[in-house]
């Protein structure tokens, strides 16, 4: 992993493959289970995969606290390495960062590809758009996140378990309250002026696919795709189908 200084932050970034540029923003959990997905992406794109500050075990600066800060960091990153015509791919928490970037500035973007993004509050005040996994027992968390895959934490090594603990800590750091969303983000979705594709696992129990359809209704130039047999992380559970979906250019 390369280290690059962006806006005063030492950012760890993986750069793999050749082809048109893609910025991939990772989700909140199971970094090591995403390795096969990133390798597949690298067969088709030159893929830039930063590790979000904090998730890498390094404490972010005290004034760096919300997903808006992450979005400015990655907009600065695109400026700094001067990427254009970028396919911006974000999954879950990373999808939320992607949305925050795109409502701010799409100049360097070709398209926005989002796998079950968090971040946009659509339901009423007594409805969870995003399940409160923090309050669920382990077996219910597993069935919310995965359709068919059994993730056995007992088989994870120490580094991987520490990674999960860090991921949980920094998901809370950025997004404990309001719960996994920015209350004003829904208001600004119209600003996204590049083609958007929403990809959803049909059996997602964390962010339901019917929420995804409602989100699509709030966007222009959007395509909504579901992947059967997958939960919240189709990129883990249905890798080939997810890659095939991404290979069809967004916006036709």
């Amino acid at each position: 992993m390369k280290r690059i200084s962006v806006a005063g932050i030492e950012l760890g970034i993986d750069i793999r493959g050749n082809g048109p540029p893609m910025l991939y923003l990772h989700p909140e959990h199971y970094a090591h289970l995403h390795e096969p997905f990133i390798n597949k992406l690298a067969e088709h794109w030159r893929v830039f995969v930063p590790r979000h500050p904090g998730f890498d075990g390094r404490q972010p600066p005290s004034q760096f606290r919300n997903v808006g800060d992450l979005s400015y960091l990655y907009l600065d990153l695109l400026d700094q390495i001067d990427l254009v015509e970028v396919t911006l791919l974000g999954a879950s928490f990373g999808g939320w960062i992607g949305l925050e970037m795109a409502v701010r500035n799409t100049t360097r973007l070709k398209s926005l590809e989002l796998i079950a993004p968090l971040g946009v509050k659509l339901g009423g005040r007594e409805k969870f758009d995003f399940a409160d996994l923090s309050a669920l027992p382990d077996d219910e968390v597993a069935s919310a996140l995965f359709s068919e895959t059994f993730v056995d934490l007992g088989k994870f090594n120490e580094t991987q378990l520490l990674g999960i603990a860090q991921d949980r800590q920094f998901l809370a750091y950025y997004a404990w309250k309001p719960h996994l969303h920015n209350p004003s983000l829904a208001y600004w979705l119209h600003r996204i002026n590049v083609p958007i594709r929403l990809i959803w696992g049909e059996n997602d129990g964390y962010v339901k696919s019917d929420y995804g359809e409602c989100l699509a209704e709030r966007m222009r130039d959007v395509e909504f795709c579901t992947i059967p047999g997958a939960g919240h992380y189709p990129q883990i559970e249905k890798l080939d189908e997810t890659i095939s979906t991404l290979l069809v250019a967004a916006g036709g």
Binding site: P137, L153, L161, R168, Q169, F170, L171, A172, W176
Partner: peptide
């Protein structure tokens, strides 16, 4: 699930308890 809220204890302890 209520014993180890994220970031409440050190990540080393949380990792063991996972």
């Amino acid at each position: 699930q209520f014993w180890f809220p994220p970031g409440y204890t050190s990540n080393e302890i949380t990792a063991q308890m996972l």
